[in-house]
């Protein structure tokens, strides 16, 4: 059972306090998008063995959505950050690079 620290209220929350919300940093495609764009937004998801970025809600706590960077293999948590962003914070990406050299996830990687 995971522990994730909510970046809003600072509580190291038990998994039972949290609701998972799937992959983070999706770009919404609405009317006007072509089928390929829309289907990739709605259906296609990463399934990495390693570094992953995902959404969680502190549902039985402060109610806020946040993002977590986590290793799906070892369940190591690299960090959590507010959901109001389109990309992981630079400091977090550096921290991941230190622990998982050569990592990449969608358009994000050690270099970018």
């Amino acid at each position: 059972m995971l522990i994730l620290t909510c970046p809003y209220c600072g509580v190291a929350a038990e998994e039972t306090e949290l609701a998972p919300g799937g992959e983070a940093h999706l770009t919404r495609f609405g009317p006007g998008s072509d089928d390929a764009e829309f289907e990739s937004y709605l259906f296609y998801r990463e399934n990495p063995k390693g570094v992953h970025f995902e959404r969680w809600r502190h549902a039985n706590g402060c109610g806020k959505w946040f993002h977590a960077a986590r290793c799906t293999n070892t369940l190591e948590v690299f960090g959590t950050y507010p959901a109001q962003t389109t990309e992981p914070p630079a400091a977090l990406r550096e921290a991941i690079s230190a622990k998982r050299p050569g990592w990449s996830w969608r358009s994000f990687s050690e270099e970018t």
């Binding site: 609701a19 919300g21 809600r57 959505w65 959901a83 109001q84």
Partner: peptide, 13 residues
């Protein structure tokens, strides 16, 4: 209510 909050917090913040 959760659905509204999800879109408010994660898309149109």
């Amino acid at each position: 209510h959760a659905h509204m909050e999800e879109w408010l917090q994660t898309e149109w913040w």
